[in-house]
Nucleic acid binder design. Structure first.
Lengths: 235, 235
DNA sequence: TCTATAAATGTGTTTTGTACATTTAAAAAC
DNA sequence: GTTTTTAAATGTACAAAACACATTTATAGA
């Protein structure tokens, strides 16, 4: 079959905005650019789309290659297409945002890869339009987390309710009333109480909970209305 | 500056899922494909990205060219990238979804362009992955409309509350209690009551309302929690 | 045994959602 | 001109959820 004639062909890339949570703050995983221009500067994890893969496969491949990470929460965000966004040549980039359990990958990242975690608040300036991508991803994180239980993706398998509350407070940069927070969280039916307690943060200790993954998948809507007055935060 | 070497270059296209509302049902605007393969079959409005434009400009250009429509609600949906989605050659397509006031363009569409409205429920099978795009757009329409007042984009400047309710009932394929619907709608503060009534649909007549556009923009969140139990509908 | 601390739970008030009922305006029929 | 019919508009009571604040509980360490 003939090709479409007289049309512009261009490069398509993906860039990943990867969020983690260290127990206190939201972090962002960045790498150093390996080629000119802007070589050595911090940027999002990215790569070009290959002939035989779709975008999601591409994002997973890049993630695996540059960090060893696989099987994490990955969601297409938006496609960025300003004609001059990459000075080398026309490249359109599809941004993906990822949520990972920071502890699970901490060691391998430091030893085997040149990726590095930054406090979101203290991230360096990034190349091209990557700052814009991060900004959008942050907005999307707040938006989505106000409607769906995605923040569990940032926590280890076992976590306590005070830890979960701290995460929400970090994401929304506010504080919640603990009585109401735990009531709401437990009313979703998504949490399974464990017998052990976490005694690191208090004398009394806080019970661990696990996410009920079946219910999580079947009931991804359970957090609708989770954040009080989400309009304060999400736009 | 050199180009990136050894990377695959490909075509980038946009496709628009255009929704309208005829007073009773949601409709979809389609065109006939003008080139082989699949020539003459119905498909979404689309076109290739040019060297000097970004995707949004491309979508607006295509819309203008094929329908004369401009200045309507247009939102990037998702980028579709299966390697073989277009049999001619590798083409990645960015889908956009648009909402328009059907009455505003009805005449020009029929006379000057070959575009045609279909009842969403009775749309023909579309080419490539366009059916999948429409499905996603429908989902997004419900999702977004449960949180933001976007459905006004489908109505004429003046509309009545019963008309608005009919629109919501069409989109969510359900019925709402009229007392509660009007209370909720009016409590957003987004509507301005007019002096005239619409007497087409009843003897008593229903008051026209206009959207307060300043408030609409400033308060795009006003519909958060608008749809009761949105989880029933949006996923 | 006492003290300090964070976790967990109790409870009253306010707000919002929901269901159902009634009243109102105006054209058309009588 | 009075009555009937119809959909629009409004009234209201009950239930559920959100919210604010208070109290109790478990446990390590003094």
């Amino acid at each position: 079959m003939n090709r479409y004639s007289k049309q512009t062909r261009l490069l398509l890339a993906i860039d990943c905005i990867i969020f983690g949570f260290d127990g206190n703050d939201i972090k962002l995983l960045l790498v150093k650019r390996s080629l000119e221009p802007e070589k050595g500067k911090w940027n999002l994890m990215g790569g070009f789309l290959r002939a035989d893969e779709n975008l999601k496969e591409c994002a997973n491949r890049v993630l695996k290659q540059l960090t060893g990470i696989e099987g994490v929460y990955l969601e297409q965000l938006r496609t960025f297409s300003k004609p001059d966004r990459d000075p080398v040549e026309r490249t359109v980039s599809v941004s993906y945002f990822a949520l990972i359990d920071i502890n699970k990958y901490e060691k391998q990242l430091n030893h085997e890869y040149s990726a590095e975690w930054f406090l979101l608040a203290e991230k360096p300036k990034l190349i091209f339009d990557h700052d814009e991508m991060v900004k959008l991803a942050q907005k999307q994180l707040r938006y989505k987390a106000s409607l769906h239980p995605i923040l569990f993706e940032l926590l280890p398998e076992k976590f306590t309710i005070p830890q979960l509350q701290g995460l929400y407070e970090g994401v929304y940069d506010t504080s919640f009333e603990n009585r109401n927070f735990s009531r709401k969280v437990l009313s979703t039916g998504l949490l399974m109480k464990q017998k052990e307690k976490d005694k690191i943060n208090s004398k009394k200790g806080a019970f661990f909970y696990k996410l009920d993954k079946k219910k999580y998948k079947a009931n991804f809507q359970a957090f609708l209305n989770f954040i009080p007055n989400p309009d304060k935060f999400i736009m």
